[in-house]
C-alpha cells in the first residue's frame, strides 16, 4: 500500500479547483471583508486585471529560467478563473495592487520598481489569513507555482531530467 502521506495531494490536486476553493473559502461568493468591499465597489479600471502579469512576474521573475508570464501563467490563470468567485478574487486583487501602487506614488503596479513590487508581495504574503491580500497571494502563488513547475522550460535550471517516464532514472544509485 502507499505510505499514507496525508498532505501530499491536497494542495495542488487541480490548480483550477484550488483557485476556486481559495476564493470561496475567503468569502468571494459572499459579502466581502472590510478590505475587499470598498475595493470592489470602487470604479473599475478599463482592464479589471491590469497589473496581473506584473504581479505574477513578481512572484516568479525571470532569471536563469523564464518568468511566469513567459510561460503563459497569466493567460492560464485567467482561463482557469471561469467561475464567479475566482473572477471576483482576481479582480479585487488587481485593484488592491493598483491601490498599493498609488499609495507608493506610482501610476500602476507594473511601473513600480522591483523593490516596491516585492515589498507589496511580501506584505500580502504575511497579511491576516482571511484578508483579501493574503487570499489573493495564496491563490495566485499556489496556482502560479503549480503551473510554472509543470512545464519543462522551468526544469532545466533545476537540473531536473523529468518527467519520470518513459526514461525513468536508471542512474538512481549514483551521485546526480
Amino acid at each position: 500500500m502507499p505510505f499514507p502521506a496525508p498532505f501530499v495531494r491536497s494542495r495542488w490536486r487541480l490548480a483550477r479547483r484550488q483557485l476556486l476553493q481559495l476564493a470561496v473559502a475567503a468569502g468571494f461568493l459572499r459579502p466581502f471583508d472590510a478590505v475587499a468591499a470598498p475595493i470592489l465597489e470602487s470604479k473599475p479600471e478599463s482592464d479589471p486585471l491590469v497589473g496581473l502579469g506584473a504581479w505574477l512576474d513578481t512572484l516568479i521573475p525571470a532569471d536563469a529560467a523564464p518568468s511566469a508570464t513567459s510561460l503563459g501563467i497569466d493567460a492560464a490563470i485567467v482561463s482557469a478563473a471561469d467561475d464567479e468567485a475566482s473572477k471576483r478574487l482576481l479582480t479585487a486583487g488587481c485593484r488592491w495592487l493598483q491601490q498599493q501602487a498609488s499609495a507608493r506614488g506610482g501610476a500602476a503596479f507594473a511601473e513600480l520598481t522591483d523593490a516596491d513590487r516585492e515589498a507589496i508581495a511580501h506584505a500580502a504574503s504575511i497579511a491576516a489569513p482571511h484578508s483579501l491580500p493574503r487570499v489573493f497571494f495564496d491563490a495566485t502563488w499556489s496556482f502560479a507555482t503549480t503551473r510554472y513547475y509543470s512545464q519543462p522550460a522551468s526544469w532545466a535550471s533545476l537540473g531536473y531530467a523529468g518527467p519520470p517516464q518513459p526514461a525513468g532514472f536508471p542512474d538512481h544509485d549514483r551521485p546526480p
Binding site: 505510505f3 501530499v8 495531494r9 494542495r11 508581495a121 513547475y149 509543470s150 535550471s157 537540473g159
Partner: peptide, 30 residues
C-alpha cells in the same frame, strides 16, 4: 511523501517567493 517533483519543492520545501525563491529552488532541488 511526494517530495519527488519541482512543484512539491516550490510549495512545501522552499519558503518565500520571487528571485530568492527561485535561487533556493536551484540550490535545494533533489
Amino acid at each position: 511523501a511526494g517530495l519527488n517533483g519541482p512543484i512539491a519543492y516550490a510549495q512545501r520545501v522552499v519558503p518565500g517567493f520571487g528571485r530568492a525563491h527561485k535561487a533556493e529552488m536551484r540550490r535545494v532541488f533533489g
